[in-house]
Design a binder for these strands. Structure first.
Lengths: 133, 133
DNA sequence: AATGGGGCTTCCAGTAACTGGAAGCTCAAG
DNA sequence: CTTGAGCTTCCAGTTACTGGAAGCCCCATT
């Protein structure tokens, strides 16, 4: 398989696949013409990567997950640990975003949003605490 | 004021303040010895930036907010638009993270996490749809 | 006066994970 | 044989900083 077909079938753009090779996540062979020659297992790895990335795992997490994936003697606890840490990172991020959302939506509601210059959003950002809350 | 004091009072590290100068967000004067000489207004702008960044506004958003902040003839609608767009970006991000969280927490729950190699998380990532969901 | 220790300066490089673009080779079709 | 798509490499840019090195500057102490 050439890179185009693999990209098509894995859903990962060619550029990204080349990048993944650069950083050692996949190691396709080469044909005589210098083209990358992907096997089915490469395709599977790329699809695996795509799904793990879609779940927000970092590249380093993916590297570890991939090596666990290929390690028949792995312990599921190792995988679970990575996933749990990622899950709690996601929770933190959600909490942080929700806090932002909270403040910001109050500000947006308080701003009449017309042609006048008076604006509670700017007032709050300028440190004028009495603006909202 | 030297950079150290401004950093202290604005809560923004010196490195970051220098960076903000580089990209034109603040323009402190210089003393004879080459040190940056900050005025109170610079401090206010930096504190403004700190709060806007804490709400997740991008640097470009901050640049726009700052120029609106300094524009006496602004219309609050302009500010509100920026804030609303940011708010909806935050909402999108939260939704995406919650979807990840959902999938991932199911997987984590399904993984026994012991010394055995069998792992629903890897199974799902490998594309074996029957694993969970 | 010399010295020592912060604080300040600039510049370079690195981070995460790609993405765009240029220059150039290869392959299949007409 | 030419054309155009697909492939190659390499370089640069993205976001918003952050770390580190080399080297002034200033103040206090000896």
């Amino acid at each position: 398989m050439n890179i185009g077909e693999v990209a098509e079938r894995s859903g990962i753009p060619p550029k990204t696949i080349r990048y993944y090779e650069d950083i050692g996540l996949v190691r396709p062979q080469r044909s005589g013409n210098g083209y990358r020659a992907f096997r089915e297992t490469d395709l599977h790895k790329l699809a695996f990567l795509g799904r793990a990335r879609a779940l927000g795992f970092s590249i380093e997490d993916c590297r570890n997950l991939l090596s666990l994936y290929e390690d028949e003697t792995r312990e599921s606890a190792q995988v679970k640990t990575i996933a749990e840490e990622h899950l709690s990172a996601i929770d933190d991020k959600i909490a942080q975003l929700q806090e932002m959302r909270e403040t910001l939506s109050h500000l947006v509601e308080a701003c009449h949003g017309d042609h006048r210059p008076d604006c509670p959003i700017l007032k709050d950002l300028s440190g004028d605490a009495e603006s909202i809350r």
